[in-house]
């Protein structure tokens, strides 16, 4: 059964006709063509598909499109601040937080969500916040470093 839904996607209002059972992940990737959001498992166990739904990070592979009418969605494609990279993106570049990069969009979305809530997290808090985002390449060391550095960048900006 197809249904017409109204969305705000990365700040722009869109309407789209979609089968109720289509997962948000597939809606984004296959129907809208935003492939920055990655599929690692499709079962809610890896975090590669993390997007913001009404301001909160969710695994988009667990959300059905039928529930989305009126929703506000932000994907990795909407993480930049205007033309500028978000501090988490800058820090991942600088610290080597991405290797193959497949987990990276999900990691970045989750990292920003953490820093929005807690601008000065401890290493333990970072490890805990990212524990649902799997990375097979980095061993997490550089990712944790990058989140710490991003926190500093954000705090310094606020001080200025």
């Amino acid at each position: 059964m197809k249904k017409k839904i109204q969305l705000t996607l990365n700040g722009k209002s869109t309407s789209i006709e979609v089968p109720n059972h289509r997962l948000l992940l597939d809606l984004l990737r296959d129907e809208i063509g935003l492939t920055g959001t990655k599929e690692g498992c499709g079962t809610g166990d890896c975090g590669a598909c993390t997007v913001y739904l009404n301001g909160k990070p969710v695994n988009s592979c667990l959300v059905l499109s039928g529930e989305l009418d009126g929703a506000d969605i932000v994907t990795i494609e909407g993480l930049k601040i205007g033309p500028e990279l978000h501090p988490v993106q800058k820090a991942f570049i600088q610290d080597g937080g991405a290797q193959c990069g497949y987990c990276t969009p999900g990691m970045l979305m989750m990292s920003k969500a953490l820093l929005d809530e807690n601008p000065n997290p401890t290493e333990e808090e970072i490890r805990y916040a990212l524990s649902g985002n799997l990375c097979r390449c980095t061993g997490y060391a550089k990712i944790i470093q990058a989140v710490q550095d991003a926190a500093v960048m954000i705090r310094n900006k606020h001080v200025q």
Partner: peptide, 20 residues
């Protein structure tokens, strides 16, 4: 710094699994 990292942090990188 890695030469391929920019496209990876913006979601622009197209992987085999993304290809249409």
């Amino acid at each position: 710094t890695r030469v391929d990292v920019n496209e990876k942090v913006t979601g622009e990188a197209i992987y085999g699994y993304d290809l249409v």
